[in-house]
């Protein structure tokens, strides 16, 4: 610390060292903060990260349910900044709230789960996009639909491009399976997690 470089600050420098916490101290206090924030009802967004066959995933939940699943390539700092501005900056890394979501995703990636039984919070999307995203949950495990079929099923047969946008902006990938939506010719289309991740998920569901 630059302010205590001088001989004058010798006592302060020692005091600084003596009062410095180790990582363990801070980790313990952080856990205590997570618990207290939750108990007081001021933990607006809790998040954690998990490992998966498609790389690290960030999971975030409000009190209402899972609100965001993000791929690392989406940039976690940016994802959290967006949650702060769109939902609330009262955000802590607090894995407890994500325990069930993390477990179900683990089972899914292990091929032992075909659908998710989780409360979801759709507040990051609205209007037509949200309608499309809610429809995604009805595409069965191991099956695919084209952007055109999805447009037909949400009764906007001409809104193929808008369906593509809704899939691309899906705030809950994997859980809301936008990876099951392909181009009419069977080619992959796009994916926020990258085409490799989309292929991995489709292969996983074929194998199971």
């Amino acid at each position: 610390m630059s302010t205590i470089d001088t001989e004058d600050g010798l006592g302060a420098r020692i005091l600084y060292t003596l009062t410095s916490p180790d990582q363990n101290d801070l980790a313990t206090l952080h856990r205590r903060l997570e618990t207290a924030a939750h108990a007081e009802g001021i933990l607006d967004v809790a998040y954690t990260t998990i490992d998966s066959p498609v790389g690290s995933l960030l999971l975030a939940a409000t009190r209402n349910g899972l609100v965001r699943v993000a791929y690392e390539r989406e940039d976690y700092d940016l994802v959290l900044a967006t949650l702060a501005s769109k939902i609330s900056p009262r955000i802590l890394r607090a894995p407890d709230r994500l325990e069930v979501a993390a477990r179900e995703l683990g089972e899914y990636f292990a091929g032992r789960r075909t659908d998710f039984d989780l409360p979801l919070d759709y507040s990051l999307s609205s209007g037509f996009r949200q309608i499309v995203q809610q429809h995604l949950a009805r595409i069965p495990y191991g099956r695919t639909q084209s952007y055109k079929q999805v447009a037909d099923q949400v009764r906007h047969p001409n809104a193929i491009r808008a369906v593509g946008t809704a899939c691309a902006t899906n705030p809950l990938p994997v859980v809301l399976p936008c990876h099951r939506v392909l181009r009419t010719d069977g080619s992959l289309g796009g994916y926020a997690g990258g085409l490799e991740a989309k292929e991995t998920l489709l292969r996983l569901e074929q194998a199971a």
């Binding site: 410095s20 916490p21 101290d25 801070l26 952080h30 959290l80 900044a81 900056p89 009262r90 955000i91």
Partner: peptide
């Protein structure tokens, strides 16, 4: 421009505030 996630504040200032409390 928006407020940072509070987690960032804990990360940046957690040690500093603990030194103050201990001091």
């Amino acid at each position: 421009y928006a407020k940072e996630p509070f987690e960032e504040i804990v990360r940046k200032h957690g040690a500093q505030v603990l030194r103050v409390c201990r001091g």
